[in-house]
Amino acid sequence: MRKLRKRSICILRNKLSKRQLAGMLFVLPGFSGVLVFCLIPFGDVVRRSVVRSDGSFCGLMNYKTVLSNEAFLLAARNTLRFTAVCIPLLFVIAFALALLLGQAGARAKWYKSALLVPFAVPAASVALLWRVLFDTKGLINGALAAFGRAGVDWMNTGNAFYVLVGSYLWKNTGYVVLLFLAALAQIPQTIYEAARMDGAGRMACFRYITLPGIRCASYTILVISLLNSFKVFREAYLVAGSYPQEDIYLLQHVFNNWFVRMDVGKMSAGAVLLALVIGACIGGLQRLWQGKEA
């Protein structure tokens, strides 16, 4: 009897390890690709960030160069400012639209699709429109002139920043609305019903049920919005090129220009720094969210 049990455990173990093997085999091809195209080279970049171009070790010199590089600092400031302005705006607008959509009834589906259209539109396709709209003699200034207002120089002054914010919002609002809708749908209706029974008004429901209900999802939404905020470079690059007005000179521009000049030392150090900052941000956000939950 005991022998039998032992044997069956043995078989079970054997099977388990077989299964483990199968799992590994499934993951392996993709993982080796990630290893070759991402992880190993990234390790190489970490190495390159602490050596001179001739290969000799130089400690943190590259980092010092990067951190005292004016273009890098300007771009870091701009990127920070861009995120700080965009993300709250995006959240407020998208959340308001999601709430409105919740009340739209049968037509909600159509509106939802329409809102999502910009997400499917390639950046290059709208570059032409951006030019026509925001040129000093463009459509917007034309409209302003028709109302007797003076024209605005959109792309060569600080206004360029707001144009970029606008284009980010245009592109991402629909996506985030969808995410918020999904989060709202997860709040059980019974809670609302119970609250109404207890005499809670709409504001109270919103404050004490809706807002806490989307807290958890809003972390993911925040991370995804941050991710997509880096892609705004496409519009900026297509409309204003490698050296745009200095308020929209973003980190992506710096990296691109370093890349064109093959400035390996600076790029490596910059890439490591950026990866660290992003990692720290996400780790911090995660901690913040989990901390509140506890």
């Binding site: 991402c38 080279p41 990234f42 880096f230 992506q252 990296f255 890349f259 390996v264 890439a271 990866a275």
Partner: peptide, 9 residues
């Protein structure tokens, strides 16, 4: 973001 992995890639 792509800019971080651009050089390694």
């Amino acid at each position: 973001p792509f800019q971080v992995v651009m050089l390694p890639e």
